[in-house]
């Protein structure tokens, strides 16, 4: 066991899976000698060579489509999209193709592939290097969507994603790449895709979050804990398929729900959680379901005060927790 950053855990997962299974290969922009613009694949080209770590043309549609074809022909591609913001040229290939092929062939073809993409704001990335895309893609049956919030989960979930027989969109909080650290065991272990994780037990209210926001929610929960507010924190981890049982069980216990996400609020991922709680948890409800999310503007603005205005962070989250606890 040693302390690692989020990105080190991600790299370690890929390294171990490349070593473990010759069917695994990586493609994407600058993933080769450069090791990726965020250094997720650093050292892997030197170790595995140009037939396992393949610099792609600058063409997202085909990074995904080539992955789909290779997956249907027996390999397990890991396709890196340099920033989640630039995944949209591949939308058709992900949504109409990767996600639908298993169903549309009556299960005779599978698409075992991982699409990795750094997402999220807070790094001065402006409109096109800060986006959160999870709601759009979680809407798609046939696609799995995973967002780890810590290095341990990142390594275990990425290994599960690589071994999964379905297309998995694996979103990584770029703000947390070096900021979020944690204990990561050496060697092989997996974290299953599906189950959510109660990362903090509490009695007054439940907070649902994932990725970077989960990290901030932990800080906020700590803060309000000192004031006597007991927060239960659910790290969703897998957005599709969602672990509804864990979501509802926690709500049963606290009766109050705050959902935190940095994507813009309208029709964001929190809207589905709120709908599930209203549909299936109405009898436990003690307060209006609350959402804290990004504002409904076309992106995270660049300038520092504007970015701060956009981004939910520990302070805004703590305020929302206080408000809900007081209801």
């Amino acid at each position: 066991m040693s302390e690692k950053t989020l990105i080190e855990a991600i790299r370690e997962a890929m390294d171990e899976e490349l070593a473990r299974n010759s069917e695994v290969f990586i493609t994407g922009e600058d993933v080769g000698p450069r090791g990726g613009v965020f250094r997720a694949t650093l050292g892997l080209f030197a170790k595995y060579g140009p037939t396992r770590i393949i610099d792609s043309p600058l063409a997202e549609l085909s990074i995904v489509a080539v992955g789909i074809g290779a997956a249907m022909n027996g390999l397990r591609p890991i396709c890196e999209i340099q920033f989640a913001d630039f995944i949209q040229p591949a939308y058709n290939q992900i949504v109409n193709e990767a996600a639908r092929i298993y169903y549309r062939t009556g299960g005779t073809f599978t698409v075992p592939m991982v699409i990795r993409a750094p997402y999220g704001g807070g790094i001065g990335g402006g409109l096109y290097h800060s986006q959160s895309i999870e709601a759009t893609y979680s809407h798609v049956p046939g696609l799995k969507v995973v967002i780890p919030s810590n290095p341990y989960d990142a390594k275990g979930l990425l290994k599960s994603a690589i071994r999964d027989n379905n297309p998995v969109l694996f979103l990584e909080a770029k703000k947390g790449y070096r900021l979020i650290k944690g204990e990561v065991p050496e060697g092989d272990y997996t974290v299953p895709i599906g189950p959510a994780n109660v990362t903090r037990e509490g009695t007054d209210l439940t907070v649902y979050a994932y990725g970077m926001m989960h990290f901030y929610c932990q800080q906020a929960a700590e803060e309000v804990g000192k004031e006597g507010i007991s927060v239960e924190l659910v790290d969703l981890r897998t957005l599709n398929p969602l672990d509804k049982d864990t979501v509802l069980n926690s709500f049963k216990k606290t009766g109050k729900a705050l959902i935190v996400y940095e994507d813009n609020r309208f029709l964001g991922y929190g809207a589905e959680i709120a709908a599930i709680l209203a549909d299936e948890g109405f009898n436990y409800m003690d307060a209006p379901i609350m959402r804290l999310a990004g504002p409904d503007v076309p992106g995270v603005p660049y300038s520092h005060p504007l970015q701060d205005w956009f981004m939910p962070g520990p302070k805004k989250i703590a305020d929302a927790m206080r408000k809900l606890a007081a209801y």
Partner: peptide, 22 residues
């Protein structure tokens, strides 16, 4: 598998061929 959106199979075929080569 044939899809309805035209030409989606072409880059997939490149992927099939790449896998064959690898």
């Amino acid at each position: 598998s044939v899809s309805s959106p035209v030409a989606t199979q072409v880059p997939q075929a490149a992927g099939v061929a790449l896998a064959e080569k690898l």
